[in-house]
Design a protein around this nucleic acid. Structure first.
Length: 891
RNA sequence: GGGCGAAUAGCUCAGCGGGAGAGCACUUCCCUUACAAGGAAGGGGUCACAGGUUCGAAUCCUGUUUCGCCCACCA
């Protein structure tokens, strides 16, 4: 940090400025969105993070994207609302708090419902504050005055309202159905909360003997195949396919259930696949979804042999009651074997369902639950997507979405938990009547029998039931006149991961259509996962997670944002590499230093007072301004298409590759006055224009850095975050771009010649140019740039040059020559080249020798051999180049 | 069993009908007063494979292979 320019250190220090600017933005009220006439609204509601813990790197990506979109639209003058909030995350939060309790040796039952909920609320307060703090560190420009939580009074009212209206419309029903039950969480879970994983298992073949004894043909009974023998205790039938000739004559007969003795019928049902197992299926309506349906079709009784705790019930018989279901499996197999009824065992891998939360094997159980009828809701939800009213980005996710809705089953929404929205239903203890009502309208007495013993349903709703309402409940629904609902709904874009399209996106769409009659958002921008550097999912158990806060502390929020958003396309996973973080950090530093340089030359600069006329701008100015307009248009287009990575790349390439590498270098002597006052003024103004505009373009991506720099630059307005988004100013100039292109190519060609020939950096010489027409004009116009940047004394047009020349063709038309004499000592250079050539040849011979050695080829690892091969190729190429240069020197 | 994605420079990835690119890594030179977290020059790729459409294909179509993911009630 020895030198400073304008008192600025040569390395950008994000820690010094980030909190300062965030506080300034917040105090200035820039995050607050006000809808006004004439200002088109733009709204994003945040996918509410769970209050289970801290934000992870995926949140950082997701929220960076939202912030970029919001900041961009805000600068465009839209009334941009980013509505923040958090989700109570029912089962997940309850689980973490229970875990915390367990450390104190407590269970929630010991605490009781009320005190347990107090604990959860305390947890919620702590983590909500945490999460909001983290979003602020990231730079998120949310309207914090509108922060919501899924269990806020208003949102809870929406939940209640939705439940009651669904119920009144017949779209919610309660009933005894088979559901996915987690015996550890002791609650029902939805289909989506079950993960199917392949598991090594066995397929047991069991003989169920005929009640009436063997048939005349000798058959003693029917053999069924099962992967879960313990469930046989609850069998109430055997099913075969109606067209299966092997069994057709058996339909209607009765078999005796082994171990239990119950007499059960053989029924015909088309759900049976004759090609699987023996073609005969044991039917356990209480413990298998297919069997449940089959049982209903045939009026079979339910025998529940596994309880909600995963242990066998009394109905399983005294030998098994109380046993864990897996212990019971072993016992049943043992007993069947003893009776000679186990007639075969095969190895068999099949899918076993596990609880999304705790990985416990799910038990299908019949229990009394609440369901949402999906049929009538799915149709419109598919229609709005088919019609393009709601668009997925990228588009391929529409198919996934539609496919899911086409096959969706009714949604089990009740959970046997405490943390969540309590179901607004009461049951009469006297007559069993069910009453569904808004809490404030709940009757004191049973409307049917008049009894006073109405008891509220103890269960709560699936957490996604409330998230499904998020886009409109946060804006004030069910109050139809809520100003925010009127001003900002439907929202514009939902940014979310592909992992919750079914859980959340689909449910928001059908809920919104049902209750607001409108779509909830116009676009769904789907993000991929951030994986670790090996491509693995980040997870707590692997310990491979990257904490966004750690990145922010080490490198700054802008760096993290830029890292996550570049080189990545919507819907695709990306890997996290610290090298990429460093690349983003370097870019920030590049901007910082370009600004440092510019500030040193813009002292006392007044943009309005010094605007040069068009005729005062020279080639480089017209070129960079043209490029600035082009990049402005391209970046804006990319943002409109949600290609944020593309927009970021465009700006990166422009700023680093064109502004810094070329324009700043060209402008240095001009700013120092080398080309006179007019040139200096044009350069100064253009430099300011390019830098100031670039900062505005970069602001959504790098909010802190751009603010810090912009504030130091001559500017208008209180903050770059409320400065106007750039629009092209009609400065496109294809002629200037073409001419400058040629100039740049000439510079590159001359530099190349110098480097190839080892011309000492300090040595200058004239360059001879042969060109015609426009090329000639362009090179004449850019002569000063070429001379300075390529370190050439002067350009001599139309001359053939000296002996020992080196030639480069430029743009196929012009030709540049450098005389070697005067640049290098030809004799010494030739000697050096010969030495290098010898070395290269010697090394090449060694490498070739190695590659000819059978022992090496066989013994060395393939990658080593490959490397050797590449080395040989490179050496050969190098030798060739050296020879060519030697010839050049000689000629 | 369906569906989707990926396969491009040593690594990580953009590009998706006319130029094969970026960052990192590699080689050479340069501490030139914006930046060595930098500058200049350079090496490195039959764009997985096979067909097809086209004047032209990394890019579109068909098929194949290898990874990865999602969905599905096969007991």
């Amino acid at each position: 940090m020895a030198r400073t320019e304008q008192g600025l250190p040569p390395v950008y220090d994000p820690a010094r400025v980030e909190t300062k600017w965030y506080a300034y933005w917040e105090e200035s009220g820039f995050f607050r969105a006000e809808a006004e006439p004439g200002r088109e609204p733009f709204c994003i509601v945040i996918p509410p993070p769970n209050v289970t813990g801290n934000l992870h790197i995926g949140h950082a990506l997701n929220n960076t994207i939202q912030d970029i979109l919001i900041r961009w639209r805000r600068m465009q003058g839209r009334a941009a609302l980013w509505l923040p909030g958090t989700d109570h995350a029912g089962i997940a939060t309850q689980a973490v708090v229970e875990k915390e309790l367990a450390k104190e040796g407590l269970t929630r039952q010991q605490l009781g419902r009320e005190r347990f909920l107090e604990r959860v609320w305390a947890w919620k307060e702590r983590y909500e504050a945490n999460i909001i703090g983290q979003l602020k560190r990231l730079g998120c420009s949310c309207d914090w005055t509108r922060t919501r939580f899924t269990m806020d009074p208003g949102l809870s009212r929406a939940v209640e309202e939705v439940f009651v209206r669904y119920y009144e419309k017949g779209l919610i029903y309660r009933g005894d159905y088979i559901v996915n039950w987690c015996p550890r969480c002791e609650t029902a879970i939805s289909d989506l909360e079950v993960n199917h994983e392949p598991a090594e298992g066995k397929l047991w073949h069991i003989l169920y003997p005929f009640v009436d004894g063997p048939l005349p043909d000798g058959r003693r009974g029917v053999v069924v195949a099962t992967t879960r023998p313990e469930t046989m205790l609850g069998d109430t039938a055997v099913a075969v396919h109606p067209d299966d000739d092997r069994y057709r004559d058996l339909v209607g007969r009765t078999v005796r259930l082994p171990l239990v003795g119950r007499e059960i019928p053989i029924v015909a049902d088309a759900f049976v696949d004759p090609s699987f197992g023996t073609g005969a299926v044991k039917v356990t309506p209480a413990h298998d979804p297919d069997d449940f349906e089959c049982g209903r079709r045939h009026g079979l009784p339910l025998v529940q042999v596994i309880g909600q705790d995963g242990r066998m019930t009394a109905a399983a018989g005294p030998a098994y009651a109380g046993l864990d279901r897996f212990a019971a499996r072993a016992a049943v197999v043992r007993d069947l074997e003893a009776q000679g009824l186990l007639v075969g065992v095969e190895e068999h891998t099949h899918a076993v369902g596990r609880c999304d939360r705790c990985d416990t094997v799910v038990e299908p159980l019949v229990s009394r639950q609440w369901f949402v009828r999906m049929g009538p809701l799915a149709g419109p939800a598919m229609e709005v997507v088919r019609q393009g009213l709601v668009r997925f980005v990228p588009e391929r996710f529409t198919k996934i979405y539609l496919n899911w809705l086409e096959n969706v089953r009714d949604w089990c929404i009740s959970r046997q938990l405490w943390w969540g929205h309590r179901i607004p239903a009461w049951e009469c203890r006297d007559c069993g009547e069910t009453v569904v009502a808004r809490e404030r309208e709940a009757p004191a007495n049973c409307p049917r029998c008049g009894g006073a013993r109405l008891e509220r349903d103890p269960d709560v709703l699936d957490t996604w039931f409330s998230s499904a309402l998020w886009p409109f409940s946060t804006l004030g629904w069910p109050d139809e006149d809520a100003p925010d609902l009127r001003d900002f709904y439907p929202t514009d874009v939902l940014v979310t991961g592909y992992d919750i399209i079914f859980f959340w996106v689909a449910r928001m769409i059908f809920s919104a259509l049902e209750f607001t009659g409108r779509i909830p958002f116009r676009h769904v921008l789907v993000t991929g996962l951030v994986r670790d550097h090996l491509g693995r999912k980040m997870s707590k158990s692997l310990g491979n997670g990257v904490d966004p806060l750690e990145v922010i502390e080490k490198y700054g929020a802008d760096t993290l944002r830029f890292t996550l958003v570049t080189g990545n396309t919507p819907g695709n996973d990306q890997r996290f590499h610290w090298e990429k973080v460093e690349g983003a950090r370097n870019f920030c530093n590049k901007i910082w230093n370009a600004a440092r340089f510019a500030l040193g030359h813009l002292e006392g600069f007044d943009p309005a007072g010094e605007a040069p006329g068009p005729e005062e701008l020279e080639l480089a100015d017209r070129w960079i301004l043209s490029r600035l307009d082009a990049v402005t248009a391209e970046a804006t287009g990319a943002l409109e298409r949600f290609e944020l990575g593309e927009a970021a790349r465009l700006l990166y390439d422009f700023f680093w590759g064109e502004v810094c590498d070329w324009y700043l270098e060209i402008v240095k002597p001009r700013l120092a006055g080398a080309d006179g006052e007019a040139s200096r003024r044009a350069a100064r103004h253009t430099l300011w224009t390019v830098l100031e505009t670039s900062l505005r373009l970069l602001h959504p991506f790098l909010p802190f850095l751009t603010e810090e720099v912009w504030q130091r630059l001559p500017h208008r307005g209180p903050s770059v975050m409320v400065a106007p988004w750039p629009v092209p100013q009609g400065r496109r100039d294809p002629e200037a771009e073409a001419r400058m292109g040629l100039v740049m190519e000439a510079v590159r060609a001359l530099r190349n010649l110098r480097a190839e020939m080892n011309v000492p950096p300090g040595r200058k010489a004239p360059a001879y140019v042969r060109a015609a027409g426009r090329d000639l004009e362009a090179l004449r116009e850019g002569e000063r740039y070429v001379c300075r940047l390529a370190h050439v004394e002067e350009l001599r047009f139309g001359e053939d040059g000296a002996a020992g020349k080196v030639v480069a063709a430029v743009a196929g038309a012009a030709e540049l020559r450098l005389p070697l004499a005067g640049l290098v000592d030809v004799e010494r250079e030739a000697a050096r080249l010969r030495r290098e050539l010898e070395e290269a040849r010697a090394e090449l011979a060694r490498a070739r020798g190695k590659l000819a050695n059978e022992g090496f080829l066989r013994g060395a690892p393939p990658e080593v051999v490959d490397k050797e091969r590449r080395k040989a190729e490179e050496l050969a190429a190098r030798a060739e180049r050296l020879e060519a240069r030697l010839n050049e020197l000689a000629g």
